[in-house]
Computed example of a mutant assay.
Amino acid sequence: MLSLAGTTSAPAQFPGMRPSVPVVIPTLQPPDPVYAFPQHATLTFSVDWRVFTAGTAVFHMDRVGTEEKVTATADSVGNVNMIFPVADKFQAGFDTKTGCSTGFSKQLQEGRRKINSDLAFNYATGKQTEVVRNMVKVTSTQKTASIPACVADSLSAIFYVASRPLVVGQKVNFPLADSMRTVTVAMKVEGKEEIKTPAGTFQTIRVQPTADEGVVKNRGTIYIWYTDDARHMPVQIRARLFWGTITFHLQSYEIR
């Protein structure tokens, strides 16, 4: 189990076994104090699969006190909607001073599948609790696991990373709460690139998130392009999966 110190306990050793090396989970560094999180932002993306548009994704951000609330929706369109309709909603938040996630929930409607889940963090006790509800089978399960003193979640992490210095050749490492585990995600800043989207042409910084396990690894090869300015606004996201590549292209944005 993960302790509050951010390491796993070592298993018992037996003759002939090599000593195990504890897995060290990095400390989540607070956002850069000079970074200005938006009071309100709406980013709308088209989602392309191969040669056609498969859906739309919309990210909303609203600041309430020191908490940045993030909501994302993903909806299928066109032929994809007729074959396999998708209407997903994700909600998360994080403290703009510490970067710590305040929770993560999702409502998935994918084909005949309907799953709702809520992930809550109790940093005082070092525990995370997940409740998963199958809305078709009308069943519910609850799990609890340990977490470090501060973690990110898979949605708000996109915007937490925007608050960190993005220097080509360096990495932003942080702990991610993932399927009742805590995994280390390394955001490698690979280079600078000009990106053209329907919302305009942007000078960007290309970042590749990697992990040894969990949702980041299972999603294949992922790239995120952030604007190369003080905003670090994500304008393109690409995931190369075993069944094809999907790309999020920024269609429009409103930030204040």
Rank of each mutant, 00 (worst) to 15 (best):
8 T>W: 03
10 A>R: 12
17 M>L: 14
17 M>R: 15
19 P>E: 09
20 S>Y: 07
23 V>L: 15
25 I>F: 04
28 L>V: 05
34 V>F: 09
35 Y>N: 07
36 A>H: 10
41 A>R: 02
52 F>H: 13
53 T>H: 09
54 A>V: 02
54 A>N: 01
56 T>W: 05
56 T>N: 10
58 V>I: 13
58 V>R: 02
60 H>Y: 13
66 T>P: 12
76 S>Y: 01
77 V>S: 04
78 G>Q: 06
80 V>N: 02
81 N>T: 07
82 M>A: 11
84 F>I: 13
84 F>W: 15
87 A>E: 15
94 F>G: 00
94 F>R: 00
94 F>W: 04
99 G>D: 04
103 G>T: 09
105 S>L: 06
105 S>G: 09
109 Q>P: 08
110 E>A: 07
110 E>P: 03
111 G>K: 08
114 K>W: 03
116 N>I: 04
121 F>P: 00
125 T>F: 07
125 T>K: 14
125 T>G: 11
127 K>F: 12
128 Q>M: 13
129 T>V: 12
132 V>T: 15
133 R>P: 12
135 M>Q: 09
136 V>K: 15
137 K>N: 07
138 V>D: 13
138 V>R: 11
140 S>E: 15
144 T>F: 03
145 A>Y: 02
147 I>R: 00
148 P>L: 01
148 P>H: 00
149 A>G: 10
150 C>N: 00
153 D>V: 04
153 D>R: 01
157 A>I: 11
158 I>G: 01
158 I>K: 01
161 V>D: 00
167 V>I: 13
168 V>H: 05
169 G>C: 07
171 K>R: 11
176 L>H: 02
176 L>Y: 02
177 A>K: 02
183 V>H: 05
183 V>N: 10
184 T>F: 14
184 T>S: 14
188 K>R: 06
190 E>W: 07
191 G>T: 10
191 G>N: 05
191 G>Y: 15
194 E>T: 15
195 I>N: 10
195 I>F: 10
195 I>M: 12
195 I>Y: 04
197 T>Q: 12
197 T>D: 12
198 P>D: 12
200 G>V: 11
200 G>F: 04
201 T>S: 14
204 T>Q: 03
205 I>P: 01
208 Q>Y: 04
211 A>V: 10
212 D>R: 06
212 D>W: 08
214 G>S: 10
219 R>T: 05
219 R>V: 02
222 I>L: 14
223 Y>N: 08
227 T>R: 01
229 D>M: 08
236 Q>T: 03
240 R>K: 15
246 I>S: 02
251 Q>H: 03
254 E>I: 10
